[in-house]
Nucleic acid binder design. Structure first.
Lengths: 242, 242
DNA sequence: CGAATATATTGTAAAATTTACAATAATTAA
DNA sequence: TTAATTATTGTAAATTTTACAATATATTCG
């Protein structure tokens, strides 16, 4: 019985982070260049085995900070992957998290055994070790469905942003396009954006108004049971193909 | 380094299943009476440590079948819980799953080290060991948000059911009430129910029509991008309390 | 057989939301 | 001043949601 019990306690658990960022050229994912075995010398999700004296949630934050220098970012658990042979060193379960960061506010720098850290466009991801491509796919879908229900997109934008930038973000993630007028009407009707009164500068055309996400207003809305789901109007023929 | 690596491989992983059932008296959860340490002699979620030669998904199914006799049921991963001291025997991460079953179609029988298995009304759950109450809470919320987006409720009903039964199910899970006319209009407009032409028998009043869930129609709808979300009309004042 | 009882079933008008669609405004550069 | 570029805005039609109650169909009982 004790023997039996011991046999269960031979697994390791790791955390793999899917870190999304966004800039004008679209949605990005942060990868590190592995400087440690296994799969040394290839690009992978920033992830590592968990020390057994640390809570799971803290571990996710710690792993991210150790490898990329990022801290205090929005993180959420995605899914746990546990195929028998997913890791060459033994039985390793991995808990995947996603993180959203404002690329402008953070400087990413590889550390610990990560030799490099770099942003890859979501549409151009190399072959990754372990089951990391599967994890990434899962994360993309989760982001996609999540952003339709909660305003997490603001975690990816700078503090002040234009409605055009916001629309670009939604279009990138949802891989679709919205009518400009309807998008603005809808997002403004949700009533959690504040017009800062400021405008874009140093652009060579009509400057756009700068908005910010109003957390307080948003929380009030949620607290009073108001729906903050987007349910966006799509372009015609976009959603009904028979 | 090898020493270091070894220190990671001393965790265990368990699976805990939140099995939901439904009958006329409401939503139920399946608990087992533990006949093994730790927490022997108390009610708990059916869960167990995972053998390290079995995939995570298979383990979830196996654990459920071993303890309760249930197999081939609708299961989905919920979340992974990993506080350091959640298990008295060592570091145990647990992956929670939920399962939906048609209580009429299955006979639940405790086996392995489970001494009993019984259905508990969702509103009357005892104190559970480990973090099982937290897991259950998590599962309830997941079921709640999930059923608003996908017709998973049919997994809880018998093959043929009345619209009243369906409405009761939705009302139980969502803890709200719907207007009869609006509920029927909406659910029928979704176009994945088939009127079987049969009627209820042995009731002492007007018998209701029996419907069934039409998987093929549903898949066609989903495949053509049609929205199957419910977005139910609620009773007035139900969702805006300020 | 008729009445009482119990649940099932259905329609419609008003309000709100979504959808489709293009002209005008504000800035810089030439 | 004009050209170029992006930002901003309105409205009518269609669809969906909402609020609301009368009628239908079965069984049981007297």
């Amino acid at each position: 019985m004790d023997q039996k019990l011991e046999s269960y306690f031979k697994a390791a658990v790791s955390v793999d982070n899917v870190v999304f960022g966004f800039d004008n050229s679209g949605l990005k994912v942060l990868l590190i260049y592995r400087g440690a075995d296994p799969y040394r010398n290839c690009w992978a999700l920033p992830g590592d085995l968990i020390a057994l004296d640390t809570d799971l949630t803290s571990s996710a934050e710690k792993v991210l900070q150790d490898l990329t220098g990022l801290e205090k970012v929005y993180m959420e658990q995605i899914h746990t992957f546990g195929k028998v042979n997913r890791h060459p060193y033994g039985r390793v379960f991995t808990v995947a998290y996603f993180a959203l960061i404002k690329t402008e506010d953070y400087h990413v720098h590889a550390s610990s055994w990560a030799e490099e850290a770099a942003w890859f466009p979501i549409s151009d991801i190399p072959d990754l070790p372990f089951d990391h491509n599967e994890i990434l796919e899962y994360a993309k879908n989760m982001l996609k469905s999540k952003i339709r229900r909660q305003p997490i997109g603001f975690e990816l934008l700078p503090k002040y942003f234009t409605l055009t930038e916001l629309q670009n973000l939604y279009e990138s993630i949802l891989e679709t396009q919205f009518d400009v007028r309807n998008f603005r009407k809808k997002i403004l009707s949700l009533d959690y954006l504040t017009d800062t009164g400021m405008k874009q500068s140093s652009v060579t055309h009509r400057p756009a108004k700068l908005y910010k996400f109003n957390t307080k207003k948003y929380n009030n809305l949620v607290h009073s049971g108001f729906s903050v789901e987007l349910n966006f109007p799509l372009f015609p023929t976009e959603n009904l193909t028979v």
